[in-house]
Every structure is written in structure tokens, then in C-alpha cells.
Amino acid sequence: MAAVSSLAFPPPVGRPARLVVLVSGSGTNLQALIDAVADPAYGAEIVAVGADRDGVAGLDRAERAGLPTFVHRIKDFPGRADWDAALTASVRAYQPDLVVTAGFMKILGSGFLGAYGGRIVNTHPALLPSFPGAHGVTDALAYGVKVTGCTVHLVDSGVDTGPIIAQGVVEVTDADHADGGEALHERIKIVERTLLVEVVGRLAREGHRIEDRKVWIPA
């Protein structure tokens, strides 16, 4: 029998969990987390927001909330490894317990994964492992599925291949095929925001462990 690999990530004791959130766009998931952490009972605080591009609405949301921000654009670095090292250093400066990639559209490198593997939370607008990648909504629609949804998972070195934490289901209607999935994507986003807030709060308050791709959060 193969040995069971196990990693444990207990919650912080006597303080809220520290979150660094990474964004690339409008930051609606970030806003949901900003709203959630306003309640002390949530058990977490956002200590910084990072982005891979300038001028995105997610940074505006962070600044309105009084949160520190940083930006690392890939084009400003000699290579992808240099960008990853800079991103890792900036995140490390805030000593996070969890990193949340909330609409962050870049693949994290080995250095970042080495520093925060098992503690990076991502969302995807499909029911993984089906329809990974940047076109999860339209790929699911084109395949003809009757239900789709969203997945909150931990990030690993693949594209949307990390251990699944939770999933939410959204029904596909005939009307969704008429607009190319725009309305469907909006319905998925509503479920996604709620699920992300719930999962991050539970990880912050209760911790988690990973056993052979299964994520367990204490009841």
C-alpha cells in the first residue's frame, strides 16, 4: 500500500489570519473579501493586494479600503523567473498565512509555489477537473453540459489542477447559448464570490490539511 502524503496548515493562534490577495482585473472577488473581513468574527484580515498590471479596478478597490498595494508586470523583468522571484519577495514581506488569487491571470512559478504551496487559494468558473483554463465558461457551454458552476481549489504547478476544496453548481439554460455564456458567467460569479468568502473564512479560522489531493477542514 502506498504511503499517504499529508500536509497540515493549522490556523494562527490569537490573531486573524493574514491574507495577501492577487488580482488582475475588476476585483469583484477581492471586494467580497474586503466586505467579509470587516466582521471580526470572520477571522482574517487582508494585509496587502498585489497585481500583475497597472490601472486595474482591483487596485482601486484596495486603495479605497486603505490596503497596501504592489504591482509587478512581467514585461518589466528580464524573464519569468525574475518576475516570480519579485512577486514572492513582495508577498513574503507581508507574512501571509494564505494567498488568494482572485482573478489573477498569471501562472505562478516554482519559487512562489515553494514558498506558499498548499496555502494558495484560487477560484475557477467551471466544475474542475472539467474545463480548466481561461475559457471554462464557454468551453462548458460548447460541450453541451446541463450544469456547470465554480470550483475553489488550492494552486499547484498545473493549470487549474490543484486539490479541490469546494464547488458550487449553476444550471445551464437554453437562453445561455444565445448570448455566448455572458449571463451564465454572471450567475457563476455570484456563486463564486459566496463560495470563496465561505472557504477562505473557514481556512482562516480552522486551518486545513491535505491528504493525497483531498483537502480537509476541521468541522
Results as ranks from 00 to 15, higher is better:
Arg119Thr: 01
Pro132Thr: 13
His124Thr: 00
Gly118Ser: 09
Leu113Ile: 14
Leu113Glu: 10
Thr123Arg: 04
Arg119Glu: 06
Ala115Gln: 15
Pro129Cys: 14
Ala115Ser: 15
Tyr116Pro: 03
Arg119Asp: 00
Pro129Asn: 15
Pro125Phe: 06
Thr138His: 08
Phe131Asp: 10
Ala134Ile: 15
Gly114Pro: 04
Gly109Thr: 07
Val137Thr: 13
Ile120Gly: 03
Gly133Pro: 10
Ile120Lys: 11
Ala126Asp: 12
Pro129Trp: 10
Leu127Glu: 02
Val121Cys: 01
Ser130Met: 15
Gly117Cys: 08
Gly111Ala: 13
Tyr116Val: 07
Gly114Asp: 04
Ala115Glu: 15
Thr123Gly: 06
Leu127Asn: 02
Gly114Phe: 01
Asp139Val: 03
Gly114Glu: 02
His135Gly: 02
Gly109Phe: 11
Ser110Tyr: 11
Leu127Ala: 09
Gly111Trp: 05
Phe112Asn: 12
Asp139Tyr: 08
Val121Phe: 06
Gly111Asn: 09
Ala126Phe: 10
Gly111Val: 05
Val137His: 01
Val121Pro: 01
Gly109Ile: 07
Leu127Gly: 04
Leu128Ser: 08
Leu127Asp: 01
Phe131Lys: 01
Ala134Val: 15
Val121Gly: 07
Gly118Leu: 08
Thr123Ser: 00
Tyr116Lys: 07
His135Cys: 10
Ala134Phe: 14
Ser130Tyr: 14
Ser110Cys: 12
Pro132Asp: 13
Leu113Met: 13
Tyr116Ser: 02
His135Ser: 14
Phe112Ala: 12
Thr138Ala: 10
Ala134Glu: 13
Gly111Thr: 05
Leu113Phe: 09
Val121Met: 03
His124Leu: 03
Asn122Ala: 00
Pro132Glu: 12
Val121Ala: 02
Phe112Ser: 10
Pro125Met: 03
His135Leu: 12
Tyr116Cys: 04
Phe131Cys: 07
Ala115Thr: 14
His124Ile: 05
Pro129Gln: 12
Asn122Gly: 01
Ile120Gln: 06
Val121Lys: 06
Ala126Cys: 10
Gly109Val: 04
Val121Glu: 04
Leu113Arg: 12
Thr123Glu: 05
Thr138Ile: 14
Gly111Pro: 05
Gly133Lys: 11
Gly136Met: 02
Phe131Trp: 09
Pro125Gly: 06
Val137Ile: 07
Phe131Tyr: 14
Phe112Gly: 11
Pro129Asp: 11
Ser110Gln: 14
Gly117Met: 08
Pro132Ile: 10
Gly109Cys: 05
Leu113Asp: 10
His135Met: 11
Phe112Asp: 12
Gly133Trp: 09
Gly109Lys: 07
Phe112His: 12
Leu127Pro: 03
Pro132Ala: 14
Arg119Phe: 05
Gly109Asp: 08
Asn122Glu: 02
Thr138Arg: 15
Pro132Ser: 12
Val121Trp: 08
Asn122Ser: 08
Leu113Ser: 11
Phe131Gln: 10
Val121Leu: 01
Pro132Trp: 12
Pro132Tyr: 11
Gly133Arg: 10
Gly133Ala: 04
Asp139Phe: 04
Leu127Trp: 02
Gly117Leu: 05
Pro129Thr: 12
Leu128Asp: 07
His135Gln: 15
Phe131Thr: 11
Ser110Leu: 13
Asp139Ile: 00
Ala126Val: 11
Ala126His: 04
Pro129Gly: 13
Leu128Glu: 05
Gly118Ile: 05
